[in-house]
Design a protein around this nucleic acid. Structure first.
Length: 698
DNA sequence: GTAGGGTTAG
């Protein structure tokens, strides 16, 4: 049976037992990892290999001393040992050197022939090969092998060389061939060659292993990557920093943070000074986990080891800051990048534009765009589309139109479905229906396909404008084009239903929804049914919600509440708010401190917010009735709508308060915040209690 | 695409 990594490590490289500051820091990190690992890695690739930490645990927790300690114990007279001196190494500090080859004077001729081989059909390969202009000596053959593409040709040539048996095949020939195969993601062939090397006793070196490992990684064969890393240790070959960071990246992509940190720490304890590539791997991993502490750890490590980030590291860190939800820190990091004299590239600017857009930081977004133009920083297609999306997120209509025109006039960055979707979003959420429809028509004219997101934007704005027949047409065209309505689109249709003013329109929209989500339509009907009872709908509600994507669950519930309220079925609206709360759709709705009780309705629809207000007042009335303690201050937060197009909750909430004659006043310091003092609220609550009843719903 | 490692879009 193949030994595991732990045994391989045990044989050759006992785990360093460092007790330095670094070790303490790692312990701190480990703790943070446990606390912060709320986000599991997305679609973690399956691996049958036990995790490295599982394999390491028996070693790290065992009381067995390592060899150095054993030596110390047997020689009590050795009185001093340098505690900072690295213990046995897990990494070779010397990067594998490439063997120098003499310049081949026939390089031009050979490359020309290689091109001929590359360009010919596979059937003609052997015929063309017969016309080889020079003796296929080792040097000549290597040069040709190195210049061939695609991988099929490299493989054919390599096989031919072996059958000719002109000279013994050296490691470098395998390495060159494997690299070409990696471009074609031919892991099976690479593994075949590797096994052939083993049987023919051709040594595998660090270049061989790193090529195998990275190919496995690119093919998502992570267990294979780990397997070959273990095999390397078993043969007694030390990884150099290239192989080491390749395997770090494998564990990082598996989301195995602890293993990565453990390997990293052990490498450093062996005297390794990680380079920017290793830090980029760490930064990406923490970014994917949305782990801000991890990102800080990377920054601190770089600082303490005196490693200056390069552009790739900055880009990865920026992306990571965005994923960790730290736009301000991303902005400072970007400034640091500029101060260090580096010039941002397309990836840098894409990250930043995405961050500012998501954060709705209009001022910074505009400044960024101005700076991009004035400094003539590089632009590419992805950046164009990201900037457009950023404009859509923030509501920068003119800027978006400008960019869109630029794209239309450019040669290489013609608007595609992303660009058109962003434009639909801009006009759609801005309520500019005619422009949105224009974009839709233009798409079919220029042959850009609508996608589900664009369809959703368009349907949403047509719905808001009450243009139901056009909505139905867009829906039909979308479905005909093969768009599969997703939960967001269903939520959008449901919200249109909640806004429809007449039954004919409701039926038209429900007919669309019926095609996408018949279960939801049945539920809408059941909550309006005469036979309605909470117990009956509860299970079905639970079923629907659990079958719905996370980000569409609360919108579903919001719309259902709105539908009930529009039908004057207020009690049922309260039931649905209760069910939504029960299934965790409204976390953080109520917040209490000693002095203030606060209700945060920022993620609720108008009807849901009204329902929540009534529910809250009802609960407070009961509290008053029971003469229980109340805080001095009450507040309700509607927000002002971070999006300039999405204001309205605050206004409707205000008018509902007025209708109830509730003593809440718009806060002067904080927009979108309504406050009431206990002094004012309690008498009002009392006045509304037709004792002993407690309901205050209107 | 210099025998091997890291970064951009709902």
């Amino acid at each position: 049976m193949a030994p595991t990594l732990s045994t391989a490590l045990d044989l050759h490289f006992p785990i360093p037992q460092t007790h330095t500051k670094r070790r303490i820091f790692f312990t701190r990190r480990k703790r943070t990892i446990y606390c912060n690992s709320t986000k599991p890695p997305q679609n973690p690739p399956f691996t049958k290999t036990p995790s490295l930490s599982e394999q390491l645990r028996p070693l790290s927790t065992t009381t067995l001393p390592d060899k150095d300690q054993a030596r110390l114990l047997s020689k009590p007279k050795s009185t001093w040992v340098n505690p900072t001196k690295p213990k046995r190494s897990v990494i070779s500090l010397q990067r594998q050197t490439r063997s120098p080859y003499a310049h081949n004077p026939k390089v031009g001729e050979l490359k020309l022939f290689a091109k001929k081989l590359s360009d010919c059909s596979e059937d003609a390969f052997l015929t063309v090969l017969d016309e080889i202009p020079l003796e296929p000596t080792l040097e000549n053959a290597l040069l040709i092998l190195n210049s061939l593409k695609p991988w099929q040709k490299t493989h054919l040539f390599f096989t031919w060389l072996k059958t000719k048996n002109l000279f013994p095949m050296e490691t470098i020939f395998y390495n060159v061939t494997m690299k070409s195969l990696r471009f074609g993601r031919q892991f099976e062939l690479i593994e075949e060659l590797a096994n052939e090397m083993v049987s023919n006793e051709i040594p595998l070196d660090n270049i061989t292993y790193s090529t195998i490992i990275t190919c496995a990684k690119r093919c998502n064969l992570f267990d294979k990557a780990v397997e070959w890393f273990e095999r390397m240790y078993r043969t007694g070959l030390m990884p150099d920093e290239v192989t080491y960071s390749a395997i770090l990246d494998v564990y990082a992509k598996l989301g195995k943070v602890e293993e990565v940190v453990s390997l990293y720490e052990r490498g450093v304890a062996s005297g390794w000074r990680p380079d920017p590539i290793a830090f980029s791997v760490l930064a990406k991993m923490y970014g994917e986990a949305g782990d801000y502490d991890g990102i800080r750890y990377v920054l601190e490590e770089m600082k303490s080891l005196g490693v200056r980030p390069n552009l790739v590291v900055y880009n990865t860190l920026l992306e990571a800051m965005g994923k960790a939800g730290k736009p301000g820190l991303a902005r400072s990091l970007f400034q640091e990048l500029l101060d260090s004299g580096l010039t941002p590239n397309e990836k840098t600017l894409t990250s930043l534009a995405k961050i500012y857009g998501k954060a709705r930081w209009a001022k910074d977004a505009l400044e960024l765009w101005e700076e991009m133009k004035s400094k003539k920083w590089p632009m590419d297609f992805i950046l164009y589309n990201t900037l457009l999306t950023m404009c859509a997120d923030i509501g920068l209509v003119e800027e978006a139109e400008h960019l869109f025109m630029d794209m239309k006039q450019s040669r290489h960055c013609r608007p595609d479905s992303w660009s058109y979707t962003a434009m639909l979003k801009i006009y759609g959420s801005g309520g500019n229906v005619s422009k949105a429809v224009e974009i839709f028509e233009e798409m079919s004219e220029v042959g850009v396909e609508l996608n589900v997101m664009g369809a959703t934007c368009l349907i949403q704005c047509l719905g808001k404008a009450g243009r139901i027949d056009e909505l139905v047409r867009v829906f039909s065209v979308s479905v005909q084009q093969g768009i599969k309505p997703d939960d967001r689109l269903c939520g959008c249709l449901l919200s249109v239903v909640s806004r429809c003013e007449n039954k004919a329109d409701v039926d038209k929209v429900l007919a669309c929804l019926q095609q996408a989500n018949p279960r939801l339509v049945a539920f809408v009907n059941s909550i309006a049914d005469e036979e309605y009872c909470l117990d009956n709908v509860k299970e079905e509600f639970k079923g629907i919600i659990s079958d719905t994507k996370d980000d569409a669950r609360r919108p579903f519930c919001n719309c259902l509440i709105d539908i009930c309220r529009n039908k004057n079925l207020h009690e049922r609206a309260h039931d649905l708010l209760y069910l939504g709360t029960l299934y965790g759709l409204y976390p953080g709705l109520h917040n209490k401190t000693a002095n203030e009780w606060c209700m945060d309705v920022r993620s609720l629809s108008v009807g849901a917010a009204q329902t929540a207000l009534e529910e809250w007042m009802g609960t407070l009335a009961k509290t008053v009735n029971r003469e229980e303690a109340l805080p001095e201050l009450f507040s309700a937060q509607t927000g002002t709508g971070t999006h300039k197009f999405s204001q309205g909750l605050s206004n409707s909430f205000a008018s509902h308060l007025k209708k109830l004659a509730a003593p809440f006043r718009q806060s002067e310091e904080k927009a979108g915040c309504f406050v009431a003092t206990r002094e004012d609220l309690v008498p009002w609550l009392r006045s509304r209690i037709p004792s002993p009843a407690v309901s205050v719903s209107v």
